[in-house]
Simulated assay, not measured.
Amino acid sequence: MKILHTSDWHIGRTFHGQSTLDHLRQVFGAMVEIVKQNDVDVVVVSGDIFDSSMPSAENFTVLSTVLRDIKAAGASVVMTSGNHDSATRLGFQSEWAGLAGIHVITGFDQYLRPIIIEDEYGPVNFYGIPYLEPSLIRHHYPSHELKTHEQVLTFAMDGIRADIARSDARSVVLSHCFVSDVAASSEATDVERDITAGGLNLVPAAAFDGPDYVALGHIHGRTTITERVRYSGAPLHYSFGEAAKPRGGWLVTLDAGGLDEVTWIDFPVPRRLSVLTDDLEALLSDATYASAESDWVCAILTDRVRPVDAMRRLQRRFPFCAMLEHRPSVVVESSATTYGERVKQKTDREIVAGFLEHVRNGVGPSEFETDIVNDVFAEQRVKEASE
């Protein structure tokens, strides 16, 4: 059996205010071709199908289209709900969809009823664990302590392992969670939400001992925990923090004895992400940056003074410039003395000049600005003398 492991589709998510639906349609089209070319039997999606618990009608249409196309290409689908999804909305009419080979698992205890798909070697049991928030399910099991994700996932996997022990079938588990072998603080990007301080959301890899393969979701980058426990990552880049992470899925092959081979298959990247660091004039004129003109661009400006109207000027060359940061190449060292101590022996003009130098990262007043300051103080002296 060949399984394409994907996750975190996040249908409906925007990228810095721009819709990603057209790009996602391109990737889904490529995914369908991968299913055809590799004779994939099952596509699994480990949570976060939608980006919102209230997806729009257009988002549902995108999902319906890709599911129909995957089925027409010859593969079944097994998917679970993630923390972004509404389990109720995603699971609506899942019973009828399952009759067509589209299996949507959203119920908190549905993992105990595996989806059984057969190949020439016999049955394969797919156990889908939806995102299980401890505070929302612990009341179903009052005799068990279920305060953390580790406790909840261990409890769920204990039930799955018991079912595996009763069956000769090979097994695949889907789960949407943070595994402790992945450093959540460094691996998670700004779109991977719900990271709890203190590690309450982390689950040790050992909790998933038993199945032939574990298809994880929640982390947006490709990650191998063990040979049989992996993250596939998201199909699109949803943050500049993901720029260096490849997009694709794992092609998992099961033989008669269980896991045989796992290989990576790249998905197309409809628009690259580029992080450009230089002063504004160089970004606007240097030929070195010509290759990024059609990319999503994060521009990091190194000018000593923040340029005026920088985003508008950048977007003339880089129409898809989506993010702007100012990191001056020269930064004035901070002082431990108080402001009052620093200006105590200074004249009014020196105080103004020092203020301008401070807020503009070491750049003091120009000759024109000095003349304005002198004029203002002169007018003030005249006013004070006439009172």
Rank of each mutant, 00 (worst) to 15 (best):
N83P: 01
A169F: 04
D295Y: 03
L259I: 04
R89E: 06
A378N: 13
G258C: 00
E118C: 12
E261V: 10
S366H: 10
A244K: 15
G364V: 04
E58H: 14
K36R: 15
L202Q: 15
H176L: 00
S335I: 07
R312P: 03
S94K: 14
V35I: 10
G364I: 00
R316F: 10
A206V: 12
Y238C: 03
K346T: 10
Q18K: 12
A243K: 14
A73E: 05
T253Q: 13
A234G: 00
C298W: 13
V182T: 11
Y127H: 14
R342K: 15
V252A: 03
V179P: 02
R316H: 09
M1Q: 06
K383D: 12
V173L: 02
V35T: 08
A282C: 08
E350F: 08
H237Q: 12
F50A: 01
D85T: 05
A336K: 11
R13Q: 07
Q93I: 13
E387T: 15
R113C: 07
P211E: 09
R25N: 10
Y111A: 08
V42S: 00
W296V: 02
Q110W: 08
F178I: 04
N201H: 14
F15V: 00
V203H: 09
I195E: 04
D194C: 12
R138I: 03
P365V: 08
G47Y: 04
Y238N: 02
L174G: 02
T224S: 10
V275W: 05
S167F: 11
D309V: 06
A310Q: 05
S329D: 12
Q345A: 14
R317N: 04
A234F: 01
S386K: 15
V214G: 02
